[in-house]
Amino acid sequence: MTTRPPEPPDFGPTGPPLDSDLTQPVPGHWLDETATNVAPLTFEDEDVYTDPPNIRGVVGALSVGALVAVALGVYGSVHEGTGQALNLAGFSDGLHAKAWLGSVAFVLAILQVLSAMAMWGRLPGFTAGRGTAVVHRWSGRVAVLVSLPVAAHCLYALGFQSFDTRVLLHSLLGCFFYGLFVCKMVVLTRSRTPGWVVPVAGAAVFTALVGLWVTSSLWFFSEFGVSL
């Protein structure tokens, strides 16, 4: 007598396999309702590595700028002014040349601020292009070049003076201006500089230059008239 083989066990938790498309979702009666639900994987808590800001570079730039400002002040204090150092063709004397060159530097500084605002999208109604960056760089370079004869006249012909409030403020601003300018140039060579450093340094340089122009060129033109 032949023994009949046993029936195969039921497939799955509760029944035989389905004849439907296996690519479809698993029917609910195949699921074990007692299984532990696992939360979906998210990346919200994943640590993302970023390089820390280069604070040491900023401190180093400030230190270099401070040394430049102090060195200029010390030289202006110990050097005895000669009374004359700048004599350009077209101007009656060094003071007139200084007043006009300072005004040119002041106008170029305004142009640099406007171009910087355009590049940062802060100038309403104006879209910055490649030429805006060129204008920004060269307006700053020419402004500093124009200011160098003025600085040479102040240091060599006049020196660091403090006989009244305006003159003292002008002397201090002159030292601060070149110290801040050097600080900004050093910051631009550093990597991972915090985003706020360059705008703050640029604003400080512009503020110092405005103060220089007000205490020198504007005062000169107000006292002696606009002439060459």
Rank of each mutant, 00 (worst) to 15 (best):
V198F: 08
V200N: 06
V58Q: 06
V78I: 13
L62K: 01
G179L: 02
A99R: 01
V142G: 00
S191C: 04
A204G: 09
P27E: 09
D51P: 11
A71W: 02
T23V: 08
A157K: 06
H153R: 04
T34Q: 13
L188N: 07
V146E: 00
H29N: 14
S20A: 14
E7R: 14
W138F: 08
S191W: 10
G65H: 05
L95G: 11
V74Q: 00
F43Y: 13
S115D: 05
C154F: 11
A85N: 05
R166Y: 09
H136S: 05
R56H: 12
L67N: 00
P149W: 04
M185C: 10
D45P: 02
T34M: 07
G211Q: 07
V210G: 05
P8R: 12
T42A: 09
I55Y: 13
D93G: 10
M117L: 15
I110Y: 08
V187P: 03
G60V: 08
P27V: 10
T2G: 11
V113S: 01
G225K: 07
C183K: 01
L18V: 08
G225A: 08
I110F: 12
S63N: 04
A109I: 02
G174Q: 04
G102P: 06
A61K: 02
P25K: 08
S147E: 03
R122L: 15
G102C: 02
V198N: 10
F163N: 13
L155S: 03
V186N: 01
A61G: 07
